[in-house]
Design a protein around this nucleic acid. Structure first.
Lengths: 221, 221, 221, 221
DNA sequence: AATGAATGAGCCTTCATTCAT
DNA sequence: GATGAATGAAGGCTCATTCAT
């Protein structure tokens, strides 16, 4: 009835690898380093996962599972105003992305994959990114009039994404420029307020544009 | 009048290294590869620059000089409306960041530094990034009422930055999600139109917020 | 009456290992591969046989038993002409060595041992090779006059062996040189005809030489 | 005027590798072992030759050059009797193959390639084996009547080859069977005498066969 | 001033073997 | 009695760096 330790080493490897890969990247993190951290033999990674590359993919897949298990994507009651749903979702996402109490390394791994893709990116996009992106796209679509072309929906969605991701992707630069928010609850809440109101206004402007597929704002040049 | 070639090899190395480092990153670009491209001996990098790391720093320091030589930051006549100045500057920046005809390797190098900073980042921030950031900050400040706190200016500026940078930082993911714009003039102009109108509306919303340092939008929770 | 499976795993390992060792050699056939083929644990080889090396020896020792079980060495009625016995035996041997329908892995294992001997070769020579060699030697001796020295018998026997073995030992080269016979019955029969008539003529010439231990054929130089 | 040592290490590696590869085979000879023998760094093989495999090919190519430089293939004056040419050539070949004073490792390398081919075999066949085979084939053809089919020429040639090669390919077995000739000049000369007279008689028998492409000897069965 | 050869530490991976169960 | 996990030594190879010239 008591299950044997099963794959204790395997689990330990998955556990310790996330932060290490996040800190130095795939290439600069050696298997020796990883196995030392997991207190096992150098050959263990190849034994349990076949190769360093496959191990890395397993780390990402495993990370995704536990990254959002603590705070799942929020649902809103039917009939909620689209603006409120947008604000709720965005607060949740910003919190899980930027909150210093959350383990940050999964987000860092995703960032690294975005800048320097490995074969593991495809799986990651399908399993962790696309579901969130689909949800945000749906929310944004509800904020726009029915007839708006898909391109407009996508551009607005990407504008929202960019405002959040920049704090992950450009953190070292923003720090040097003095634009990095303090890592406390109040600051993050204010940042969320800013992005929400900025984005809602931006989306409203996109909604008001008369000719969806032309470029009316260029008439004035 | 023409000086002798002097350090022809040194210059050639600096010339060819940018695109190579941009394409594969510091770690994945070998000195052999670099020296082959510059048609010189493997030992040249260590001879002229001391080490691969120092050479990389030299490449970055040298890069910003030629990066914007073809299209310098635009100036507008005194008295130009702030919205127009914003639009002009943003069009220029988007074009130099995303236009496929431009040599994009400097932007890519900056992107890599942002995600995985090396000691060379400090120099790069001061020399290349801060001037542009200062300029954009000034433009955004002009779009806000005089009394707005610096934090609001910074958040708006960062929101603008993020909307553009996301197309560089998350390109592989956006491609897979179908959100990457076509790499032609018309698409990029439309994208610029979107970001300009989205951002102007967002900044206007930030300008209208009454209590700058409180979090008024959360009243509804 | 049927004994229980007893060492079923052990037997299965011996069964599957022959063809695998023959195909890739001792060094290039891994224990994992062998145990996968026998559908047993990686540790089985060391458990049942002590080491990979000892297992290999066991495979060779076990192999000769089943190698010729399908077509035993032919016997001829007393009084048969020596030439006919020679032809009969040679046809049988060529067929079991070269016929593609026969399982050739035992011959291939022997070939590998000849080129790269292991401690297992001694056993193999005594158990499998010497009986055949003794028989061929006896047949060849009957084709020579009584007084011929043993050295002549041996040289003739080896000349016969070499003509057959070359098709196993040098197969890859003969293929590239266009000298490999087609792998069908007719071709092999014609090859057997050739070797038989070539050898009988050669043996007859050796029989006719007057001074067995001198080198008469060199008189002409 | 004095040439620099040039590629001293490279030459030393080529020098020492032949005997080592011959003794243990490609797989069982490590680069560490090879480089220790050549008194150089482990990385030298990859530096000078790209890979262990390419190095092995270079060793074979180099070996072929010096293997026959001491005693080139013999030429006979025009008008020489075919039997004499055959004897002359065969004595030369047997001597360079089997004579104990000659460095034996190149022949051993060729033997290994025949039994366990590597990608280097193709080059070896074209560069060292085919020229000799072509020559022997031509000599054998002159011993046969004009109209004989090419298949007969090839079978006779292969019968000659096999009689010699067996002493290399099956040496460990022949030693155990007592059929290995003593490694001295007289024994080798007598062996050459035997193979020459045996083969000439065999070829004469093939020449006498009436129906070249049928199998007349089987009518009697 | 500049090179081409040479270095050695480190990389990931393979493999027969061992050990606790 | 037999297994699946784990081992560690060794494998070939890459790479920035160094050194004699």
């Amino acid at each position: 009835m008591v299950p044997p330790p099963a794959d204790a080493t395997r689990d330990r490897l998955l556990e310790v690898a996330g932060p290490l890969f996040a800190a130095k990247g795939f290439r600069d993190t050696g298997v020796t380093e990883l196995c030392d951290a997991a207190d096992c033999n150098v050959a263990s990674i190849n034994y349990h996962f076949g190769s360093k590359q496959d191990f890395y993919a397993a780390v990402l897949a495993n990370a995704h599972r536990r990254a959002f298990s603590g705070s799942p994507m929020p649902e809103v009651p039917a009939g909620t105003a689209p603006e409120v749903e947008f604000a709720t979702w965005l607060r949740w996402w910003i919190s899980s992305m930027l909150h210093p109490n959350n383990p940050v390394w999964f987000q860092t791994l995703m960032t690294r994959e975005m800048v320097d893709p490995t074969p593991a990116l495809d799986t990651m996009v399908e399993r962790s990114i696309r579901p969130m992106h689909t949800r945000l796209t749906a929310i944004v679509r509800n904020l726009l009039p029915k007839g708006k072309p898909i391109a407009t929906v996508r551009q607005c969605t990407t504008s929202v994404l960019g405002q959040v991701l920049v704090y992950k992707h450009a953190a070292p630069v923003l720090q040097r420029l003095g634009s990095m928010p303090a890592q406390n609850n109040a600051s993050l809440q204010q940042l969320a307020d800013h992005i929400i109101s900025f984005s809602l206004a931006g989306i409203a402007a996109a909604a008001a544009n008369r000719a969806p597929s032309s470029t009316p704002s260029r008439r004035k040049r």
